[in-house]
Design a protein around this nucleic acid. Structure first.
Lengths: 211, 211
DNA sequence: CCAGAACTGTACTCATGGTACGGTTTCTCC
DNA sequence: GGAGAAACCGTACCATGAGTACAGTTCTGG
């Protein structure tokens, strides 16, 4: 999940990016409330004045962090699901391929998934203003809608074996991923995430694949 | 999730219980790091000295909170899965019944599920000592093993339609629940949790139910 | 080379977490 | 009903971190 520092980035932008990167890692490891600005700037190698030059306050940092996280994830989903559609014209096959790609991507993370910012924020909701909470909610809704659209495409070709609400099935992917990230981290076993995505994939097959 | 204060509880125990209850709600709402002892004691109606009489430090509070949370959940699972077995001799049917009971239990929570302490701790791991992290890991392992045992019982009667790893299926329940709690909280829609458990139930049916 | 961007340094305020410890009330049990 | 223990209270104190203010310095791109 680390972002490459683009070569054509101004010095200020590069610093901002560095701060956000460090802050995100810290927040995912100990929570926003327990992440001090002082430790962030220590690791980033700048002073408190430097920090407040880039961000008004801690909340602004949280906002930018979240925006960055959502954008990165959106991009990832775009890539993976576009690639799936490229590799198969059948909507079900395309989705199954994409899920495998997603599982592989997660398995390839060097030291496991660092964590989901949305989940982190969710468990510290009182610390954030309405704008941030709205942003997390909207992101989740967007991802669910994206998955729902894919399922609609599948359901227009294959009819599900069991009566299932497609909205719930769409939600399920986010739930599985978030839950599996927690289990991976708690048990210190990164493979759990990959395996859960593949089990979800099996469930999709069971739901839609004819016989 | 609120525990009834037993009548035969000494005054000290009652206070401890009250502190733990208040602290748990606060931790689930804003995280451990951002939960101040001062606000806890203010709500509990005692002084800082009183607090430290019961708990050496904040870490001791976390330990007791976690123990209490795990015990409560263990009890809940015991009740629900025992009841399922009482209502059907068929292991698959018993599990499906239990899942429905679980979904109902979650739907009956007055203002939605307050949150999973394990997940909260997971996203603030650096704040806790090894003992607490080991306790969270062991709890998750225990729950997974419990579900796995149930699945073994089912698999001894019904053979799964798709080749699935039963360990992964067992993990899936915890993942779904944890993920759905996060989605419920983020979208401020308690019904999400119930629906996700029911979708998982559908997946179990699809996996094992003949035809 | 110069204007503005990107910082540094210092010097504060204020709130809060956490510690230490002696004193006081309240319970409990003989 | 009295003694001793359990369950607290009061107060004083330190360390840390958020945030402000602002003047001065260095860097950087055109």
């Amino acid at each position: 999940m680390s972002t490459v520092l683009e070569p054509r980035m101004s010095k200020g932008e590069a610093t901002r990016e560095r701060i956000l990167e460090i802050a995100e890692a810290a927040v995912l490891a100990k929570g926003f409330g327990a992440t001090s600005i002082e430790e962030v700037i220590a690791e980033a190698g700048l002073t408190k004045s430097g920090f407040f030059y880039h961000f008004r306050d801690k909340n602004a940092l949280a906002r930018e962090m979240l925006r960055r996280y959502v954008a990165t994830n959106d991009q990832l989903f775009d890539d993976i699901f576009t690639r799936g559609r490229e590799l198969s014209d059948d909507p079900l096959q395309a989705f199954l391929i994409s899920l495998k790609l997603l599982a592989e991507t997660m398995a390839d993370l060097p030291s496991g998934h660092p964590g989901c910012l949305i989940a982190s924020i969710c468990y510290q909701e009182r610390l954030f203003d309405r704008e941030i909470r709205d942003l997390t909610a909207q992101s989740v809704r967007d991802w669910n809608a994206r998955f729902r659209a894919i399922l609609d495409g599948i359901a227009s070709v294959y009819s599900p074996r069991e009566p299932v609400d497609l909205d719930d099935v769409a939600d399920m992917l986010s739930c599985i991923v978030d839950g599996a990230i927690i289990m991976s981290k708690t048990l210190n076993d990164p493979s759990r995430l990959e395996r859960q995505i593949l089990i979800f994939r099996s469930c999709i097959k069971l739901m839609f694949a004819p016989n």
